[in-house]
Design a binder for these strands. Structure first.
Lengths: 227, 227, 227, 227
DNA sequence: AATGAATGAGCCTTCATTCAT
DNA sequence: CATGAATGAAGGCTCATTCAT
């Protein structure tokens, strides 16, 4: 009520500090969850285990997350952020040494696709999490709003591809098709690769992605027109 | 155990009979497991539930399967059998009203790919199992030999595609690449479809598969040569 | 399947024995529950505690009862059986040294009411259970059928009163009213007594019941008529 | 804590102010508890819930109440206050349009009994609390002094009945008996009604109370004498 | 071979309460 | 004074697995 000798700014500052602290702890718990997840897989991620890793009692976690599904959701969100950061970084790298001409558009497309692919290739646990996103999240933990937001972030990571496709002369409808197909293909290849089943075919994941991109190049309207 | 006054031959005959009986019961239990699985999904497949369906007690199952993972493995094998049966059936259907010419080879390729895809599209539970094969199976349930055998059956289901590709003029190496790519693509599309995330892109699974096959047609060596 | 050297009768005998054994264990668990209940009250009756008393693991209880509420229900049913046994016994005691005349009918009424009252006065834990019956049982544990059955057993315990009232000339409607009023009064007195609040009034429970019966005597149609 | 340069009088004045403040806050918390209790029942009254309603954190409550049981006790006291207010109000309503004569005394008795009954009939949550008072309150929350005080308030609510009975010619001893019996009867009827078990008898609570009052009328000394 | 009892570990969650800040 | 983090105990329940019979 009373605020003797503490001005509004100080109070706000304290709130901010506390908020930051809480965020840090949330983050700490999330890290614990991630480490359990990495070490033992998703089904081992129990509240008890997370708490143990984080140095807490099981009950303490509930100060930060309403339930288990919310933790999963947060894990997922964080993963998608990293994906986006990675993709953006790749895009920026290209822009820096860009030259002109439509050939560059395809290069951007390539790099964007590759970045998406490589992120999951090099971070297999995020792939697992991604699969979980696509399958297991219970309604409680994944409200429609949450769901939309996560979907949106996933699409964000594919935005560069869309833009590149657009510049390359694909129509709106074609873009949707190609982007979806690219996504599906990457997912398929990643799954094959991640589970080691790809050995069964004697091919490498990188090869397959390259193959797909090469064939995609054959379908580029602008290039085709130029012919 | 004891073998009072029974000669070796008789004993062997009895063993055989008993073996047959045991196999039949194993099969019976597997059927029960499958039905639970199909009806309620993989996480509902508990020992108790399987046993109940099979008309047994939970404990009884352990006379036939060492543990739960072994059942999962067997479930998987059975699923792959059904996949192969479905694909073979599709192939046979084509052969019956076959006409001559290389256009028919592509038709066979198409039908083979579609059969593979449709099996999992229409039997989502088997898709779940398939993902489980690729991910969750504990070593206990999946010995190396088992693994190879399951892999082999999976490849069997893609054999018709390989043959068709061969007839269409693809080289050995190209065949491997294309088959792997097809497989990856189908898997990706199925995953997208199964989890409903495909809606996010405004495309249908069938559309995507058709799109892929259409593009594949453009790469057929024989057809290209004919031009 | 096969039943070598064991005739049907033997099999049945074994089933019966097993059934008896299971019943005995159910009963054992119920006793454990009762003892916990008596010692610490209803809210201390947890599955873990019951199990501990019974010498079991918590999970083991679920072989005999589907859930906690079912245990409560069984406890209750058993309590009502004892109530009925007690009331019947009191009734029989009267019949033995019965003399004729309507005065005897009132005696029966008195004894019936008293038996009901005394059972709960002398078995306060059954009273607690009874209150629980009337209040707390969750739907799961108390299906409508269960509920009806328990209600029926409760009414059974009041049947002697109804019959006596009938013999004493009360009409059907009057009987219903009086029986309900008697029941309510007994319940109220028992509650007051059980919780010790009755001291607040400087009266004893026995006194109050006597008072009620005395006043009831003044309303007896046959006696009134005789006047 | 510290009292730098402040004389005793000033300190006392401040203490008083603080005491008043603390009382107000206690009251505020109690109101919150009451509202939770009325809305969701006793078992929903958790420290967290109370705190939330009061705009506090759970921990803050402990500045005003030693523990949960103490809150229950206070809740009870407040409930009894409302009961008394209701009964007094009913009494006052009669006094206003009073006429003379002994018939009015019985009317007052009737109204007093009815008010008591109706309060709990129409406020079932308070009935729950009442039962809790009579049963569940742990020693911690209910010191002897507390207990006496609550008892006293309960008796207060029956004072009008006692006075009316006295005016109607009942002796001291008879009054005690009748008041206790009335209380017991009301409690029994309320319990039956509240739990819905009354349906089992095909009677209504109001009917039963009326029945009891009618019979009580037959025992009124003054009226009997007049006859 | 099959039962059914039993275990023991595990699950998520809730709660009153304490305490440093 | 009030917060919010944290505890620790408890709650009901499920499940794969084992084992005597």
């Amino acid at each position: 009520m009373y605020n003797f000798g503490m001005n509004q700014a100080a109070a706000t500052a304290r709130d901010l500090r506390q908020q930051a602290l809480a965020d840090a702890k949330r983050s700490h718990i999330l890290n614990a969850a991630t480490s359990v997840f990495i070490e033992f897989g998703l089904e081992a991620v129990s509240m008890r285990e997370i708490a143990k890793r984080a140095g807490y009692t099981a009950g303490a976690i509930y100060s930060y997350f309403a339930n288990k599904e919310e933790i999963y959701g947060a894990l997922l969100a964080e993963s998608l952020e990293r994906l986006n950061a990675f993709v953006s970084e790749a895009e920026r790298a290209i822009s820096l040494n860009e030259d002109t001409g439509s050939s560059n558009d395809f290069l951007v497309l390539q790099k964007s696709v590759l970045a998406f692919y490589q992120f999951y290739r090099d971070n297999p646990r995020d792939l697992d999490l991604g699969f979980y996103l696509f399958q297991g999240l219970k309604p409680r933990g994944l409200t429609n709003e949450w769901d939309s937001q996560l979907n949106a972030r996933l699409r964000d990571a594919m935005r560069p591809q869309e833009i590149a496709l657009s510049k390359l002369g694909f129509s709106k409808n074609e873009i949707d098709t190609e982007v979806t197909a690219i996504f599906a293909h990457i997912v398929g290849v990643l799954l094959l690769n991640h589970t080691g089943r790809i050995r069964m075919f004697g091919k490498s994941a990188d090869e397959l992605i390259k193959h797909y991109l090469d064939n995609l190049a054959l379908r580029i309207p602008k290039m085709t027109k130029q012919k």
